[in-house]
Amino acid sequence: MPPTDSGLGSSSDDTLDLQLPPEFSALFAQGHGRPASLHFPAAGPLLDNLAGWGAADTPAGPFELVPVQPARDLALITGWMNDPAVAAFWELAGPPETTAAHLRGRLDGDGRSVPCLGVLAGAPMSYWEIYRADLDPLARYYPARPQDTGIHLLIGGGGDRGRGLGGMLLRATADLVLDHRPQCARVLAEPDLRNTASVAAFLSAGFRYGDEIELPGKRAALMVRDRTLRDLL
């Protein structure tokens, strides 16, 4: 499932204006002053402290999103990105520097996109990006709502593909988002329409097909999991 910035961009020159949470405005009002730039932790307030969400129970064991640490995880993620089945949609095959640059664009930001390892029963087996879709360039291409949260996913090992794990983990991840982000009413994804296995996994995870959208570099299926329907789908 390709990253949102595949053609959209994620640099400071191609992001949406960030509206600071009220607590930051209150902090400045108390005399702390406005810093020249703000840097939030990778799992900080824009995504409700993702690092502390904990694990979800799944039929395959506990599943947890663990924020990426490049020193620890770069070689593993680079290997996954160079798998032809992954590279066909993520387009990040190449040396470790290619993967490192992609990760740096998220880790050096303000926390609106958090790269994570998906750890299932104690083993890292997938790569995820949890991001604020309403603050992402994606919001230019669909009717965004405040606090919309997006998901990108790749299953790392070929042995973990094609046996239903994708749909199961997408459901678990969407539930983690909705459980820990009470202001978020929708979890979104925009897989490439050509990636029929990905679209099918989202449907099996309780997402509905929302629309077909034209993004720079791909035609995508907008997949939506609504909080109000989570117990029905």
Rank of each mutant, 00 (worst) to 15 (best):
N49Q: 13
G7T: 04
P62G: 12
A85G: 09
V68L: 02
L65W: 09
I77H: 02
G52R: 15
L74P: 04
A56S: 13
G44M: 10
I77F: 03
G9F: 06
L46M: 15
S10C: 05
G31C: 09
A75C: 00
F40R: 11
A51N: 09
D83V: 07
F24R: 14
L18C: 06
A60T: 10
G33H: 09
D48M: 05
G79Q: 13
I77G: 08
G61L: 09
E23W: 15
P21K: 02
G44D: 08
P67V: 09
V86K: 03
P70E: 02
N49W: 13
S25W: 14
D17T: 15
L74A: 03
A42L: 13
P45W: 15
G7E: 11
V66A: 08
N49G: 10
A55M: 00
D83W: 12
G9M: 00
A55F: 10
P35Y: 01
D14V: 09
T15S: 11
L27C: 04
S25E: 15
P59K: 07
P84N: 06
L8V: 01
V86G: 03
T78H: 02
A55S: 15
L8E: 05
D13N: 13
F40M: 13
P41R: 05
V68I: 07
G31L: 08
G31Q: 03
D14P: 02
A42F: 01
F63I: 00
A36D: 15
A60I: 00
V68N: 01
A51S: 13
D57L: 14
Q30D: 09
L46P: 14
A36I: 10
H32Y: 12
P67A: 08
S10R: 10
H32I: 10
D14Q: 11
M81W: 00
F40L: 12
H32K: 10
F24Y: 15
F63V: 07
N49C: 07
A85T: 04
D14A: 12
L74I: 06
L76G: 03
N49F: 14
L76S: 10
V68E: 03
F24E: 13
L8F: 00
P84R: 00
P21W: 06
L74R: 02
L27S: 12
P59G: 05
R72I: 01
L38D: 02
H39S: 12
A26H: 08
F63T: 06
P70R: 01
L65E: 08
G52E: 10
P21E: 01
P67N: 03
L50T: 05
G31N: 07
P22Q: 12
L47W: 10
G79E: 11
F24V: 15
T58Q: 05
L20Y: 13
L47Q: 12
L27V: 10
D57N: 07
L16Q: 12
F63H: 04
G33S: 07
L46S: 08
V68D: 02
A43K: 03
M81A: 07
R34F: 09
G33V: 13
A85C: 05
T15A: 06
L8N: 04
S25I: 11
L47F: 09
L8C: 02
G54F: 11
L74C: 04
A36L: 15
I77Q: 01
